[in-house]
Simulated assay, not measured.
Amino acid sequence: MSQTVDRALSILPLLAQGPADLGQVADRLGVHKSTALRLLRTLHEHGLVYRQQDQRYRLGARLFALAQEAVENLDVREIAHPHLVELNEQCGHTVHLAVYEENEVLYIDKVESRYPVRMYSRIGKPVAITVAAVAKLLLADLSETERRAIADKLDYPMYTPRSTPGAAAFLKELAAVREQGWATDLGGHEESINCVGAPIRGADGRVVAAMSVSAPNVVVTAEELLTLLPLVRRTADTISREYSGSNRPKKV
């Protein structure tokens, strides 16, 4: 039975490349046409493949509906949380998870530092969008047109001397973040707080969330925090693979 299931599932990636006739399916699976036909008929009955008028088969509408339903019901916070906890246990610092919704970047999860000095941040609270590492990661993934439109509408409060001073500087930093695949906030919101973050991506490669590690400089220097970047990126990649359903490892 497992061989039958394996053969049936092998048909789907074949048809994802384009319509194929019975002979092509049989050749790819290495089976007789009668076996291939039986498998195709079963998939057709479940709406996973569709037989065209030219007798070729393509992926069925039911498959796309299932995929869309699965994506809509994915909860990135639920998937990410155990990995955020593990990262927190490894480094001891505050770990955040954020998403971009309705022109705001919001924290949707937080694991507190083990140290007495705590971060003043709350789940559901918007972040300082022009300086926060997670905001830079989420906005950097948008198209250039979208980035420019957002940058032109933002205010640029100078929380500290290291805050982003204006739209031109913000766009330049977003371009750098987009290129390098990670972001920092080194005293841009609070002079005593540093942060390093990495993106979480969906199956299509787009950024669906961003995570970060933050710590006050009385606990760890900015240079010491930056040494955690490989660990932060590995954690983000692990969450991305689990969220997107991919088991392929990603180099850091």
Rank of each mutant, 00 (worst) to 15 (best):
3 Q>Y: 11
3 Q>F: 10
5 V>Q: 10
7 R>T: 02
10 S>L: 05
13 P>G: 05
17 Q>C: 10
17 Q>A: 11
22 L>I: 04
26 A>K: 04
27 D>Y: 02
36 A>V: 07
36 A>L: 06
39 L>V: 05
43 L>P: 00
44 H>D: 07
49 V>A: 01
53 Q>I: 01
57 Y>W: 12
59 L>V: 02
59 L>N: 01
59 L>W: 00
59 L>S: 00
62 R>K: 14
65 A>M: 14
69 E>T: 14
70 A>V: 12
77 R>N: 00
86 E>A: 13
87 L>V: 09
88 N>D: 06
91 C>T: 08
92 G>Y: 09
94 T>R: 09
97 L>S: 03
98 A>W: 04
99 V>M: 04
103 N>W: 12
109 D>I: 05
112 E>R: 11
114 R>N: 12
122 R>K: 15
123 I>F: 05
124 G>H: 04
128 A>W: 03
130 T>V: 02
133 A>Y: 04
138 L>A: 01
140 A>S: 12
145 T>E: 15
147 R>K: 11
150 I>N: 06
154 L>K: 00
155 D>P: 05
158 M>Y: 09
160 T>I: 08
164 T>H: 09
165 P>F: 03
169 A>D: 09
169 A>R: 01
170 F>N: 00
171 L>E: 08
172 K>P: 01
172 K>V: 11
175 A>G: 11
177 V>C: 08
177 V>W: 02
185 D>S: 12
186 L>Q: 11
188 G>N: 04
192 S>K: 12
195 C>S: 06
197 G>I: 01
199 P>W: 06
201 R>G: 00
203 A>Y: 07
203 A>C: 10
205 G>Y: 05
208 V>P: 06
212 S>Y: 02
218 V>W: 07
218 V>P: 06
223 E>K: 12
234 R>E: 11
237 D>S: 12
238 T>E: 11
242 E>P: 02
242 E>A: 13
250 K>D: 10
250 K>I: 14
